[in-house]
Amino acid sequence: MKRYLSLVLLGLVSAWATSAHPTLVKVRVRVILVDQDLNQKPVPFFVVSLKSGAKAAEVKTNLDGTAEAQLPPGRCTISSPKPAELSGKRFSWNIQVSLSGGEQNIDLTNDNAKVEETAAPASSAKVATNDLTGQFKRLKNTVVTVRSESGHGTGFFVDGKGLILTNQHVVANSEYLAVQFDRTHKIVAKLIAADPQKDVALLSVNIAALPNASPAPLYRAGAGRTPVQEGERVFTIGSPLSLDKIITTGIVSKVEPHTIMSDININPGNSGGPLFNGAGQVIGLTTFGTRGVDGPGVSGTVRIEEALALLDQNRARATGTPPPGGEAAPGRARA
């Protein structure tokens, strides 16, 4: 009898413990927006608040726009303390879902968000344009394809005297260097200086042989300012794969002291190309890209400040060096 009562009591205690401490649900939140070009854009480093019963949690999304929390089952409120901004709109969330089971996935998207239009400041409305067609037409002649013995990359003019910035790994130790402006203009180039640690290199060409070439506007940061903020739209013009002067857009994921991370699509041949902000200023050199398993990858860009030091230190040296001849570069015909 005592043994029977003990078993009953143990069962009641276990039932009470289970009801008092229910199994938690692993909640995976993904914040992903669709821009005006119908591209999916994960929202990184975005704070999401979750409250289920007496338990509340605040999480921040990773580079892929996801975050996780452990919450008790039942009615859950998911909200965003601050809105996310994309394509001139603000997106905020305050939704309720029912949590159950061991795991649950919740997407915060355009469809379940509260959407507000953002008015661009009058002072920046003219330069911060979303007209990528106009930006491309204005900036495409600042970009060249850089060819070496190991392959090709991208570079861009930094002045009207024929100086070009690119990645050091594009030129490496190649004895053969050339730049291709378009299908009919290809000229020899000379290496002026390089910094392998920062992965930047400075080239010189006879710009007189390229009458339509123009220098790219370079961003020069003021005290305490960064060239771009997380969530801002950026674009690059480069020579990916076997193509020339292709425009690609993306969103900044993270700004670090020496690099800028974004979801811009970087392929072999893009290395050394200019990363432009919304105003059409160069804020970095596109350097590497990684592929995501279930979505867009992450791309790394060397900040323009890293390259400006090399440029300023060697500008005088380049001025005193005669530019290479403007004849077509021999040997490596364009593929």
Rank of each mutant, 00 (worst) to 15 (best):
M1E: 07
P22N: 05
L24I: 00
K26P: 00
V27I: 07
R28N: 14
R28P: 00
R30Q: 14
I32D: 01
Q36M: 08
V43F: 03
F45Y: 12
F45I: 08
F46G: 09
S52N: 02
S52P: 04
V59F: 09
L63N: 11
Q70H: 10
Q70P: 00
P73D: 02
C76K: 01
P81V: 11
K82T: 15
S87G: 11
G88H: 05
F91C: 03
W93A: 06
Q96C: 03
V97N: 07
Q104D: 01
D107S: 15
T109D: 09
E117Y: 05
E117G: 06
T118G: 00
A120I: 14
P121H: 11
S124R: 15
V127H: 11
G134H: 10
F136H: 10
K140S: 13
N141M: 09
T142R: 05
T142L: 05
T145A: 13
R147F: 03
G153Q: 02
Q168V: 00
Y176R: 11
A178V: 06
Q180G: 12
D182Q: 10
N206C: 13
A209S: 14
N212Q: 13
A223N: 05
R225H: 08
R225F: 02
T226I: 07
V228H: 04
E232I: 00
R233C: 00
L243R: 13
K245T: 07
V252Y: 10
N267Q: 12
P268K: 02
G272K: 05
N277A: 08
G278I: 09
I283N: 03
G284H: 06
T290R: 11
T301K: 02
V302H: 03
A307W: 03
A307H: 04
Q313A: 15
R315T: 09
E327G: 14
A335Y: 06
